[in-house]
Design a protein around this nucleic acid. Structure first.
Length: 254
DNA sequence: ATGGCGCGCGCAGCGCGA
């Protein structure tokens, strides 16, 4: 089974890329972030016509998450239970006995901003929920745009980024707290090329120059990590006309 | 040189992302 995550930066604009990529990459479950669509406008018919089950939780202009699956989706949960949040950033579903949690973690904007404090509170709520969720679901995967580069190896210029949002120590401490729940960074279970990233700024030819960050992740519970046979970043969609600034990440189970 | 690109909204130019 192939699990994937992709921040599409507007599903309306990226739907043709998504449909092509589903055909070529052949994932079984896909978590999408930044759909930027109200549920009434979600392109359900087009995606179902391609043979997918789909669940979504969206809003106008910002945020928005969705889960696509070849197999039926059960036990849908939008948002973090008990954490009041108008922003549509979480959607969980059970697929073939695996709990799949799609997250669009807040960006934080700047470390001295209210949005950064929101990001840290949000992460604390996520960690508390997952600690509980893991007791019910030993087969659990947390996929999404984390907006955290967990280590300097995930940053093209660590000195320039030092202390900035996405790399700051409090954010990395939360990432480690997720790992301390037993979750494993699927990408780092395997040898990888140096300077592997999942996001590049649209400006200044950043993709061509590989000035990127690795901020999109797949974390796996111990049981899933034990059966994981590979994890790759798929740069192909980033090379197309009008790409998302993020690339898909794919983990293979079994 | 604090913008540079791309998106949504909506019809000009701003907020936001990372």
């Amino acid at each position: 089974m192939k699990l994937a995550t992709w921040n599409v930066n507007s599903l309306k604009v990226r739907l043709p890329h998504l449909l092509d990529w589903l055909t070529t990459a052949q994932p079984d479950v896909v978590c999408l972030q930044e759909t930027k669509l109200e549920d009434a406008n979600f392109p359900r018919a087009e995606i179902e016509a391609a043979g997918w089950r789909v669940a979504f939780s969206g809003q106008k202009t910002y945020n928005g998450v969705a889960v696509l699956s070849r197999a039926p989706l059960a036990d849908l949960q939008a948002g973090i239970p008990g954490f009041a949040d108008e922003q549509k950033r979480v959607l969980a579903a059970t697929v073939a006995g695996t709990r799949v949690i799609c997250v669009y973690i807040p960006n934080g904007q700047a470390v001295d901003s209210d949005k950064y404090q929101y990001k840290l509170r949000w992460l604390d709520a996520l960690i508390a929920w997952l600690k509980d969720e893991l007791t019910r679901h030993p087969r659990l995967a947390l996929l999404g745009d984390y907006n955290i580069a967990p280590a300097d190896a995930d940053v093209h210029d660590p000195a320039a980024w030092a202390g900035n949002v996405l790399v700051s120590e409090p954010e990395r401490q939360r990432f480690r707290a997720l790992e301390e729940l037993g979750l494993r960074d699927a990408f780092r279970l395997f040898p990888q090329e140096d300077k592997s990233y999942s996001w590049w700024d649209y400006r200044q030819g950043a993709f061509r120059r590989n000035l990127g960050l690795r901020i999109d992740h797949i974390l796996l519970s111990p049981e899933l990590a034990a059966g994981c046979s590979g994890c790759v970043i798929d740069k192909a969609p980033r090379k197309l006309e009008r790409p998302s600034d993020h690339t898909p990440v794919i983990a293979t189970l079994g």
